[in-house]
Computed example of a mutant assay.
Amino acid sequence: MNQTKPVKVLQVVGAMNRAGTETMLMNVYRGIDKNKIQFDFVSYSKEESHYDDEIKSYGGKIIKLSNTWSIKEMVGKINMHGPYDAVHSHTLFNCGIANTAAQIAGVKIRIAHAHTTNDSSDSLIRKIYLKCMRKMILHSSTHLLACSKGAGHYLFGEKGVQNENYSYFPNAIDYSPFLQQDNNSEARKFKMQCGFGNNLVIGHIGRFIKAKNHLFLLRIMQCLLEKDPSVKLLLVGEGEEKKRIINEVKKVGLEKNVVFAGIRTDIPVMLQCMDAFVFPSIYEGLGLVLLEAQASGMPCIVSEAIQPEADLELGLISKQSLDEHPRIWANRIMEVVGKKEKDFLKITRAFEEKNYAVSVSIAKLMSLYSATSGGTDENYTDRLI
């Protein structure tokens, strides 16, 4: 490999909006030496995404696809904007399309990365699709990464996670902004603007999609109001389900108690506004925002769908079943309020021990991206048949 040129990597994503996978990638991208490694991004979205301008400021390209199922178009984009040393796909089962195209284009390193434990359908057609795409992923990828054990099993199957090229990859997070004392003063300003006063604030950060279970969160809120009529719910994020949730808030008369903050760049401040973080997801690959919440010392009440890798073992994670009545959740929330972790050294040590630091992720990815081979395609394919 010519060492005078930076290693060139193509990241394949749905769109670079503010979500867990995308934030993890930006944490890495901000931290790498751009003289040694450079990222371009394939986006499946025709719209501008939240991180696009920042990516361009670092010299990265945003490459749009008109047909996300076209291997031919993907090969063309790789050849047009390459050559690439590695293609790193983050698009669930569609990773098979991207990595097959990369294989045809002669890209040596082809990574499929698992970020979730489920999706929205279990129809027969969907099951057939998953089986075919999983086989495609295993045959075209030189490396398989997963943010949690559950995510790895879901995307790669039992055979995939037993492969020698499969490995657990902790999500990269720059936790230092969440430890800053400045967040407290900014949080007070925001709470004043929202009219929170000294009221109890329960929070959630995440896209408005069915998997995040906002409707259940509203049921919990109704139960909390029986205990404290002044409690507030702070919702940060955007998404396809937001309009539905807004209508539900109006329907049940919670307009004075629920604040929709939209997409925010000051997540550390948003977390400091909260007294407890509630995360009743139906499924999650990991839940990067839970790492951010723990970095802020925030007590978190989460569903059993949350992967064990997300728990930093700081005593901040409390799991509840979604089968339990929302009142049980409300009771548990009231129990943990006021029990923030204020020992920042302890928090820092937990992140380092769990290998969630950005520096660790960058070192591992640099090793993968810079590899000259992952075994021949023929031998790798033979191992998977």
Score class of each variant (00 low, 15 high):
F216A: 12
F196K: 00
I173H: 09
E240D: 07
Q180I: 04
H204F: 12
S230H: 13
Q162T: 12
Q222L: 13
L179T: 00
I209F: 05
K149T: 08
M192Q: 09
D174T: 00
F196W: 04
H153A: 11
R244Y: 04
L217N: 01
C147H: 05
L225T: 01
K242T: 03
R244V: 09
R188E: 11
Q222R: 14
K210A: 15
F208N: 04
E226A: 11
Y154V: 02
L224M: 14
E226I: 00
Y168P: 00
V231L: 09
G206K: 05
Y175G: 01
F156Y: 15
F216Q: 11
S167C: 13
C223F: 04
A211K: 05
E238I: 10
G239Y: 08
I209Q: 13
R207P: 11
S167M: 14
M192W: 00
S230W: 04
M192T: 15
N199L: 02
L217M: 14
G239T: 02
H204K: 08
M221K: 06
M221S: 04
C194I: 06
L218I: 02
H214D: 13
G150Y: 12
Q193P: 01
L233K: 03
K242L: 00
N165M: 07
S148V: 07
V161Y: 12
G237A: 08
F156C: 13
C194N: 06
G195I: 02
F216G: 06
E158H: 12
E226L: 10
R188Q: 12
F208M: 11
S148T: 01
N171C: 12
K232R: 11
G239S: 07
F178A: 07
G195K: 03
Q181P: 01
L225A: 09
I246P: 00
I205R: 11
R244C: 06
K232E: 07
L179A: 07
G197S: 08
K242Y: 00
G160C: 10
R219M: 12
C194W: 10
Y168N: 05
L235C: 04
K210I: 13
Q180G: 04
L224G: 07
C194Q: 09
I246V: 15
L217A: 03
G203V: 12
Y166G: 05
V231F: 07
I173C: 08
F196N: 03
Y175D: 07
G152A: 12
V201A: 12
H153M: 15
A172G: 06
A151C: 09
K212H: 10
G206N: 09
I202P: 11
L200W: 05
K191C: 13
K232N: 11
Y175C: 04
A211S: 14
L200P: 11
A172Q: 02
F169Y: 14
K159Q: 14
I202G: 06
K210M: 09
E186D: 10
E186H: 10
Q162N: 15
L224F: 02
V161D: 11
E226P: 00
